[in-house]
Amino acid sequence: MISRRLLLGAGLAAPFIAHAGASSPGFPERALRYVCPFPPGATNDNVSRTMSRALAPRLGVNVIVENKAGAGGAVGSRMVAEAKPDGHVLLNASAGNLTIAPHLSHVGYDPLRDLAPVALAGEAYGLVAVNPALPVHSIAELIALGRRRPGFLNYASAGIGSAGHLRGALLADEARIEAVHVPFPGSAAAAMSVVAGDSHVIIDPIAAPHALEGRLRPLATLGPDRWDAFPDLPNLAELGIGRNWPGGTWFGLFAPGGTPAPVIARINRDFNDSLAEPEVAAALRRFGLKPEAVAPEELGRRVAADHAAIGRVLRRLNIA
């Protein structure tokens, strides 16, 4: 089991000022703006700061994180989609920004046209956790409570269209319970609402440090396998839940649509090389990610497939 210090210690410092690293001709010409579409303290923010620090020495310029939160990540995503397509403004997207939110509101960008896939940081684990005062100690008990008291339970998320929003709706649907969605401006605020007892449930990796310190009670994990931070907790799939849920909870890097292919290839190479650094991979794992290096084309196919599958589920669940 990992400690709170390890979970929070890496990637939270100010962006690294580069002192070394040669740049390729014409790119980069100046510092890069690395846009995180969520507030400080969110998982997206932690990933942004980790990867910006890793990229700076490879690119030979400063890589500066900018938090542009709002509308479940849509504000920052739109800003990048409208930026000059030269590779100097990048988006650290969560899956929800591109595969969920565009189905639910007028975000002002087409995720398949206006943003170019660059690199994947990894698939994120999720933690189903509750306020310790809630009288449940397992997923079965949570479902039983929801069935006894229809409409009583609520779940907090990082906003409308976030992965936590969809996961909560899918869990309620599969468990045949009624639960109220409570959106917040970021996962850190959502987690604190559950810690304070204002909300009951959260499904998000940001809940991990609170669970390890006893401020939240963990019930189960989501992800490709068991999360090694919680080796004794069952994965939802082991409980027969979530096996057919669409999409993943990934974090990836995107550029404005129309960014030249050589620029995308350069960033992808440096990003993937950074993922291979033990300290970078370890930091991402501490934030609940399973690092995965892929080509831009593969990330693009994943986004398109998730976008289509999630659209079908949202229509089935009548979420709009």
Rank of each mutant, 00 (worst) to 15 (best):
I2N: 04
G11Q: 04
L12N: 09
L12K: 04
P25I: 08
F27R: 02
A31L: 07
Y34V: 05
V35A: 03
P40F: 13
N44T: 15
P57F: 11
G60S: 10
N62E: 15
N62C: 05
V63G: 00
K68Q: 11
G70A: 01
G72K: 09
A74R: 11
S77L: 03
R78G: 04
E82V: 08
D86N: 10
G87T: 06
A93P: 10
S94G: 15
A95V: 02
G96D: 09
I100T: 05
H103G: 03
G108F: 05
G108E: 08
A121S: 14
V128W: 11
P132E: 02
A133H: 12
L134P: 01
H137M: 01
I139N: 03
I143N: 08
R148Q: 15
R148L: 14
P150A: 06
F152E: 14
Y155D: 01
A156D: 07
G161D: 14
G161Q: 14
R167F: 10
G168Y: 09
L171C: 05
A172I: 10
D173M: 01
F184L: 10
S187V: 04
A189E: 09
V194K: 05
G197A: 10
V201G: 07
I206G: 12
H210W: 14
H210E: 12
L212K: 15
E213Q: 12
L216I: 04
L216Y: 02
L216N: 06
R217D: 09
R217L: 14
P218A: 11
G223N: 01
P224R: 15
R226Y: 06
A229P: 08
F230S: 03
D232G: 13
D232P: 02
G240R: 05
G242M: 08
N244Y: 03
W245S: 04
F254G: 11
A255E: 02
P260W: 07
A261R: 15
V263I: 15
V263H: 07
I264T: 06
F271V: 02
D273K: 12
L275S: 03
A276T: 09
V280R: 01
A282N: 11
F287T: 14
P291A: 07
V294A: 07
E297A: 13
E297W: 00
L299Q: 13
R302G: 00
V303Q: 12
A304M: 00
I310V: 13
I310S: 06
G311C: 02
L317F: 01
A320W: 05
